[in-house]
């Protein structure tokens, strides 16, 4: 049995910031899921705001590093998916405000 929670994983990823937009990946809504198995292997399912993002590899690396810092975590895998396509409605309210939506 593993007692790492989804919340802990999300909390850890909050330390990863997209330098272009200036918000962390969780508040941008780029993290779709965190799957934790009984051996404490974590799989993060995420997307990026742009397909041609030149930071692609670095961002996924940073997510992996951040999750690895959680106590008791085993293997960490990061999968980048393009479905569903990210859009601004997935971001937190304060992010939308700061970008000038509504």
């Amino acid at each position: 049995m593993c007692n790492i929670t989804k919340e802990q994983v999300y909390k850890a990823i909050e330390s990863v910031i997209d330098p272009e937009v200036g918000f962390n990946l969780v508040e941008l809504g780029l993290i779709y899921d965190a799957i934790i198995d009984e051996n404490c292997n974590v799989k993060v399912v995420m997307t990026l705001s742009t397909r041609g993002c030149p930071l692609h590899q670095m961002l996924t690396q940073w997510v992996q590093d951040a999750v690895k810092k959680i106590d008791g975590v085993n293997e960490v895998e990061v999968e980048v998916v393009w479905e569903p396509e990210w859009n601004i409605s997935m971001a937190a309210e304060h992010v939308k405000k700061a970008l000038g939506m509504e």
Partner: peptide, 22 residues
Amino acid sequence: PFLVWFERFSPLVGKQKVPMLH
């Protein structure tokens, strides 16, 4: 700014506070 950030600050991410592009 992106090129400079990538070169100078991306290696420091997670180790110290880095500037945002804007």
